[in-house]
Design a protein around this nucleic acid. Sequence first.
DNA 1: TTCTTTGCAAAAACTTTGCAGGAGG
DNA 2: CCTCCTGCAAAGTTTTTGCAAAGAA
Lengths: 147, 147
Amino acid sequence: MEVRYELEKKGIKVTKQRVAILKVLLESTVPLTINQIQDLVDLPMDLSTLYRTLDTFYEKSLILKTVPLEPSQTVYEFNHLVHKHHLICTNCGKILVIQGCPLHEYEDEVESSTGFIIDRHQLELYGLCASCQKQLNVTKKEKHTHV
Amino acid sequence: MEVRYELEKKGIKVTKQRVAILKVLLESTVPLTINQIQDLVDLPMDLSTLYRTLDTFYEKSLILKTVPLEPSQTVYEFNHLVHKHHLICTNCGKILVIQGCPLHEYEDEVESSTGFIIDRHQLELYGLCASCQKQLNVTKKEKHTHV
DNA sequence: TTCTTTGCAAAAACTTTGCAGGAGG
DNA sequence: CCTCCTGCAAAGTTTTTGCAAAGAA
């Protein structure tokens, strides 16, 4: 089974809980909160197991972790090794995954101006999705000036 | 006093607690957690007051709010109306504020490809500051490939 | 067997809420 | 004077931890 292989590849001991969690993350097209993972997993599982397992996965770079501003619960997703970011609707909470990243040259600039070694970043975009715009009768004209 | 003026300008009723909180945020060069604000404020104040006040300030765009990945407690800072981002050292936790933003054209692209109206974003860069690099004997060569 | 992981229970950390008294305009 | 704000207490959420039993290699 490929899920087991993903774990072994990272040197993570294979257990049925870990397989179940990873399967959920692999099958999801969107990032999930810990409670959503608990609901989706195919065997009952304690939250402490989920926290511990997700920490382990994160340390081994098997998954990515994001803390959105609204709602501010951490979400987890499989690390497909394709760089991407989230576009989050502040009305309905829908998360869209967008591929690609405009930050590489910027990071190089910041590294040389600050002396840091940058190894990752977190970027989310927030706004209104098309259907919430319709529902709320918002048009592009009313967009707030970006600060 | 200019702190009172900032409040009045936004239509926020002036109280000694609000003045004290805003003063702390105005005087700080770095974003602060709610506990740090409580420690820095010049009169004893309940945490519920802090939560409520910071919510109010945030709704009126008087302050900015960020949720870093590590450590993941929300931080608050005065909204100077100059766009900036954070560079966070994952070893010592130090937060550097960096001015400028490389995202404006990118947001326009994403808007047209997704139909969203984007009104803000959150971006943080994570890495090692110069002194932690020295302390940990890390050099640029060992930098992880960015995923 | 030996070491790691899990579930349970409890605690810690963080955040929200209701209400009565106090402060601001 | 009227309304809104604050402190207190309590409860709700989210996350962490210790320990004994179960599971993986």
